[in-house]
Design a protein around this nucleic acid. Structure first.
Lengths: 233, 233
DNA sequence: TCACATTTGTCCGTATGTATC
DNA sequence: AGATACATACGGACAAATGTG
């Protein structure tokens, strides 16, 4: 009755194409291969890894879907290192939604938590440039509204800018994920001028509170804003 | 001057394997293919889609990496519909982290926010089964400590169980990601019996506060615990 | 224990499509 | 327009894994 249950499985997949993709992926993460670098063509890769072309192709497919490379056909083409992970991330998140793994309620609850944390840190850490960017964002949004256009893009951007102002790259990534989900939820609805205008006004008030460092007021405003957005789904 | 801008372009992939994977994926999302259903072997799929085996294989690779199917070799094996999307999601998020060089400080700050939110929801939503699982987890950890072994695995599991008790699948995904990063940070250090023991004791106190629904006390305990863990890096 | 059938994993050769020069 | 270099795709073959009798 020995406890030989191998709990940790740092071992790699035994399939050859997994080892190949892992090795290339490691080189990219370590920075040996940088964005824009061109990988050898499939045949050459096969020789270097001592595997067949089919194996290389499946490895490239994995790297492509994981957002580490892109592949182009034709002369001068081939696999190129390019980071598209966040795009692939939103694709997968959409899948999770379509498979009903995430509900709107769960999403809103999580969003509230993370956006509040971002706001809290942004109040402490935002520098002049961040404030300027946020002000410019609102000006852009109001300009669109004045021309009876919907300010969807700037409204999404506002939260990204806020995340950047928090000076925590973890929040930036989490916020991007939230934005992706939000975007998917919204894409099913037709854009609404009224909702868009309300969002811009909420952002404006929020920024004012941030500049004045009125923390509680800002958090309350954010609460109302997120819950209002939730209703618009 | 007709508006022939094709707005609905769900299928942009020219490549054959993308069309094949999209079709199978659609069948799964629509519910025509359900979890546990066995797909035909590669050769048979090739005949049905009128493409070669290589094309089928690349399509299956995509579905596998996207978390829609698993594939097993040998007699009675083959592709089987199985939802592992959330696992694939945290894998991708981890990739995003590794490409961005997150600092320990940023990670700890984000961890604190998310774990607190999880704790808050867990206090409200944990059912009897969740509490039982958490108690069993601590018992397992203490048993290991009594035999002078390090309780790393149960200690990681504790936070996963807590996330599950929050009844929010978004938190489950985020927590899994945090665990993966945490694990990565820890892997550079040799495991420490003292630290492990302290964590178990912290978990025990925390669970006690959760059961008694002492919210503030629980959050304070979590604060101390996470910051203590941060020092161990 | 030993074949045996089934299915994925891998390799090779070849042909076609595609983008650049 | 033609040559070149590359991915894309097909078909056949054998190896490896895995459960059955």
């Amino acid at each position: 009755m020995s406890v030989d249950k191998a709990i940790f499985t740092p071992v790699k997949g035994k399939r050859a194409f997994e080892e190949v993709s892992s090795k290339i992926k490691a080189l990219i993460i370590e920075g040996v291969l940088k964005s824009g670098d061109k990988l050898p063509p499939e045949g050459e890769l096969g020789k270097q890894f001592n595997v067949g072309r089919q194996t290389i192709r499946e490895a490239l497919r994995i790297l492509e879907l994981s957002g580490f490379i892109t592949v182009q056909q034709g002369f001068g083409g081939g696999p190129v290192v390019k980071n598209t992970i966040s795009r692939k991330l939103s694709d997968l998140i959409l899948d999770a939604f379509q498979m009903k793994e995430i509900s709107v309620e769960e999403f809103t609850a999580a969003r509230l938590v993370i956006e509040k944390a971002i706001l809290n840190d942004a109040i402490d850490n935002a520098d002049d440039q961040d404030i300027e960017d946020l002000q410019e964002n609102i000006a852009k949004a109001k300009d669109l509204l004045a021309r009876k256009q919907i300010a969807t893009d700037p409204n999404f951007e506002f939260h990204s800018l806020l995340a950047r102002a928090s000076k925590n790259s973890v929040f930036v990534i989490l916020e991007r994920t939230i934005n992706a989900i939000h975007h998917k939820l919204r894409s099913q609805k037709t854009a609404d001028f009224k909702t868009s205008k309300a969002a811009v006004l909420a952002h404006e008030k929020l920024l004012d509170a941030i500049i004045k460092k009125e923390r509680e007021k800002a958090i309350n405003l954010l609460d109302q804003h997120v819950l209002a957005v939730r209703k618009s789904y």
